[in-house]
């Protein structure tokens, strides 16, 4: 019985800390971007501008939550909730430490892939329901991009699964006790990272919401709380991809001296800052380059990587 209570506490803890992290990340991203681009960033509200987080939350709640009369109302309302719920659900399988995790289901990797596929619906439906031409274009771009990059996102993880022989996240972390999978699967790591950035549509893959071409892309017509959902969903998505990079390739909670949970958070924080550094330094890709890069380079490469991994495993055993 006590284990049930513990798990429920972990669920509540995970959900609340994620929502807090997401809003803190908005502040962190603006500060780091400012640092790297030689500007000030938000520094007026409270110490280091930290009060900005609170101010943004208040603003999101008190802005008019506008559902346009020309939109498809039910779909318009449901779409933004989807991206947040699926991103939050993926954290059900992420092990934070040997004992802290919501559920060690034996299809952990598959569960994550399924949830990330569902995320596509959010973007596609939001753009279609808006009945706005910019939103439609953004949604079409987003779905084509996410479909393309999802294929080899799954394939890039197969090497890790083949080495471990299990889909369970906890088993994958335990298999990395002696050597991290980034050493055994460097190509898989790079492919998964690129696919992850594309799935969360961050720069250099932020074509679905390219400001200079499409206003705000698929969420042009959204405001108030529903816009906030897309915003928070994006930051939870970044946290999720960082957490999975750590779990699958960087040894998860393994590390010397410090407690496992702390190691996990340090590694995740490192990757989140990496994502922000990418945004600070890279330009946006062109759309045909993006599709060609995915289908012509990454897909064959991930298939080759998988076959080579298989051959090496057989050779060494």
């Amino acid at each position: 019985m006590s284990s049930v209570v513990t798990s429920l506490l972990v669920i509540v803890f995970v959900l609340f800390s994620l929502l807090t992290t997401a809003s803190l990340l908005i502040w962190l991203e603006r500060r780091l971007l400012a640092l790297w681009q030689d500007r000030y960033g938000p520094n007026r509200v409270g110490p280091f501008g930290l009060g900005q987080v609170l101010a943004d939350m208040i603003k999101i709640f008190f802005k008019e939550d506008w559902t346009p009369p020309f939109a498809d109302r039910p779909v318009f309302v449901i779409a933004p909730t989807f991206i947040v719920i699926t991103a939050l659900m993926s954290f059900a399988v992420v092990p934070f430490s040997p004992s802290i995790l919501v559920s060690d289901i034996d299809i952990g990797v598959l569960f994550f892939l399924a949830m990330s596929s569902l995320g596509v619906y959010s973007v596609a439906l939001a753009g279609w329901a808006s009945n706005n031409k910019y939103a439609l274009l953004g949604a079409l771009r987003a779905s084509a991009q996410m479909l393309a990059y999802e294929v080899f996102m799954g394939l890039s993880l197969m090497g890790v699964v083949a080495i471990t022989g299990s889909f369970s996240m906890q088993a994958i972390v335990k298999a990395q006790e002696n050597i991290w999978f980034i050493v055994l699967q460097p190509i898989g790591f790079v492919i998964f990272m690129i696919a992850g950035i594309a799935e969360t549509h961050r720069i250099p893959f932020d074509l679905p919401e390219a400001e200079s071409e499409l206003v705000a892309g698929f969420h042009s017509e959204y405001s108030g709380m529903k816009f906030g959902m897309f915003f928070v969903g994006e930051y939870i998505g970044i946290t999720l991809i960082s957490a999975l990079l750590v779990t699958l390739f960087m040894g998860g909670w393994h590390g010397p001296f410090l407690p496992p949970v702390l190691w996990f958070f340090i590694k995740v924080f490192f990757f989140i800052c990496g994502f922000i550094l990418l945004r600070a330094s890279l330009p946006r890709m062109r759309y045909d380059q993006l599709m060609a890069f995915g289908w012509k380079l990454m897909l064959p490469l991930s298939l080759l990587n998988l076959m080579a991994t298989g051959a090496v495993i057989l050779w060494s055993s």
Partner: peptide
Amino acid sequence: EYLFVLAMVGLAASMVAGGLIVARLVAP
């Protein structure tokens, strides 16, 4: 184990719905 996943779905969905409802009540 799947019950915990289900509990997580329920809690996440209710948090999101809660956010929308609160915004609906306080927003102009």
